[in-house]
Amino acid sequence: MGDSISLELRYQSLRSSDYSITSPRTPNYNCVAWAAGEDRRPWWPIPYDTAPYYWPLGEQEDESLDVFIECFQSLGYEVCDDENFEPGFEKVAIYVDEDGMPSHMARQLASGVWTSKCGDLEDISHQTLSALEGDRSYGYGTVVCIMKRQMGEI
């Protein structure tokens, strides 16, 4: 109950959304790592090597939407049209904040439900991507890009 209240204070759209908490809080990984299916270290594009921070394409000077798209393209994803569940495909969603900078990623499960790691807070499963949308104070911004790859593709 307390964890839900804490999450709903930070992400107000959750209050009117169908979601559930699916893990305890941990800083061990973040939303991008979770979207890529990893939970041992955070993923983020930074301009210097500092473990445990990881980016598949190495050090990055910027953290624009293009950098995130390129990263997930290297994992076999391609930009697609919508978030609708397609059997045989895995999808991820990229949120950007009011400055147009990536702020969050979610991954679609085989059930069609989305899963998100909320910073250092809990994982949640949520029916809609809008459950985590909202302005700077109350959400992760707006979903601007959906990518998909065939299941089983590495």
Binding site: P27, N28, Y29, R40, R41, P42, D49, T50, A51, P52, Y53, D120
Partner: peptide
Amino acid sequence: DHWFVALKALTDRDPTNPNDSFEQA
């Protein structure tokens, strides 16, 4: 928590390995 950058800046050291997990770091 995410103290790694602060520690690296203050100590000028880095005892981690590049492929370390969060817990290993």
